[in-house]
Every structure is written in C-alpha cells, then in structure tokens.
Amino acid sequence: MNEPILEAGAVEQGTSLWKDAWIRLRRNRLAVFGLVVLVSFVILALLTPWIAPYAYDDQNLDLGATPPSAAHWLGTDIFGRDLLTQILYGGRISLAVGFVATAVALLIGVTWGAVAGYVGGRVDAVMMRLVDILYALPFMIFIVLLMVVFGRNLLLLFLAIGAVEWLTMARIMRGQVQTLRQQEFVEAAVSLGLSPATIIWRHLVPNALGPIIVYTTLTIPSVMLLEAFLSFLGLGVQPPQTSWGLLISYGAETMEEYPWLLIFPGAALTLTLFALNFLGDGLRDALDVRGSTD
C-alpha cells in the first residue's frame, strides 16, 4: 500500500462508525421492519386515548362476545368490550413496563458496571461478588413472592423487574470498561494528561455504547415477557388496568368458544417481541458486537 504524500485537495469527509452502523442496519430488512413496527406501536400507545374506537370501560353486556365485525374490528369480549380498545390500552401498560423497567436496569447496571470496571481492585471484587450472589438467586420466584406479599402494584413491578435485569447490564458494562481500559488509546489518553472524567466521557463511554444499546434492545422484550408471564398467572397488572399478558390469560380461558380473544392479544405481544428481537439482532450485527451473553 502506498503511503500518502502531501497533496493538495478538498477535505474528504470521513464516515464515523455510527454512520457505518446505520448504513449496515438499513440494509437489514428484518431490523428495519422491527424498527418500523416498534415506532408505530409506540406512537399508537401514546395516542391511544384519542384514537381508541371506544371508551376504555365501555361495556355492553347485551352484546357479549362477538367475532370481528365492522363495528368492532377485532371483536368484543364476554362483557361486550371492544377488543381493539383493550389491546391498545393493554399495549400502553406492556410497553411502559418494558421501557421503564429497562431504563431502571440500564441506570443501575451501567453505573454499577462502569464504576466496578474503572476503579478495579478490591472495590471491583466486592461489587462483582455481590452481582454473582444476586445472580444465583432465583429471581422469578422472588418476584412472584413480592407480588403476593405486597399486592399487585405497578410501580413495584417496574422496580422488581428492573432490579433483576440490571445484573447482566452491569456485567456487560464492566467487561466493556475493563477491555477498553487496557486498550492503547486509553493509555495514550492517560499519558496525554487527561483527567479520569474526560477519559471516561470522551474515550470509554462512546466505545462501550454499542453493546449497551444492543443489550438494551434485547432487554425490553424479555422484560415485557416477564410482565406478561406474571399477569398471566394473575400476579401482575390487575383489573381495571389491563396488559397484553392479562388479555392473553382471559383469552386462554375462553379460547374454545372465542378464539379471537386469545389470538389477537397474542399476536400483538408476539409481533412486538419479534420487532424488538429483530432490531436487537440487527443492531448487534450492525455495531459488530461479539459474544452475546444471553
């Protein structure tokens, strides 16, 4: 390869790794599909009170359960409530749980992992030991227990799920920081005399962001699944609030007579999970994150 000699000429615009990743992501059709589905679901959830065809508590006991029709696109449940409305409102809760609990996990996990990884030594050993111990705890059982003991409370659900999911996030962040710390460009930054805060912000965080973004995208569906699981068992969201898990639970009880009550909420949940997983996989490839931890 020829080395460049001084030459005049226009400044060539470089392509940052982010731009590169975005170009790769756009080529991945499944990931784009995921992104589109996700964005539209989020918009629908935000606009639900204005676009839902019926009021949330609109019952029509005379009507009862009816299959999809022009008046009720997705049919009605045994109380004559419009299923589309139910799904829209349920989606608000399901998506909210997914995003909020993931945000909780992200906040705790990234901070914990970054501190442990950067400080190192004994602090790191103690912090990660704690993570190991918590990892060994059977959290699923604990969440069930919490829900039983303290009653079904949405806020508690956010916190409980967030508290479970931060562990992996912390491990990933610590691993990232540790690898990056040993990279020569961080040593170079130290030898330039940059302060630790600058090193973390300018040199560590931007490079650790890729895996964190990927893992966040993949945490949201597992959180939503957890909420749906609890709601299905009757331990999560409780009426009059609803969520997709709860709707599936009701649908399963009456699926012999009214299968649409199971199929449509199920489709909504599955489609969202698909979208998120495809997007996560796409991001993983686009950002070239190796070695997943799931």
Binding site: I5, E7, G9, A10, V11, E12, Q13
Partner: peptide, 9 residues
C-alpha cells in the same frame, strides 16, 4: 506526512 485532506477521517 499525512495528506491534509484526511483531517475529518
């Protein structure tokens, strides 16, 4: 000995 044009790369 780097070409000036590469400054944004």
């Amino acid at each position: 000995g780097l070409a000036r044009a590469f400054i944004r790369k």
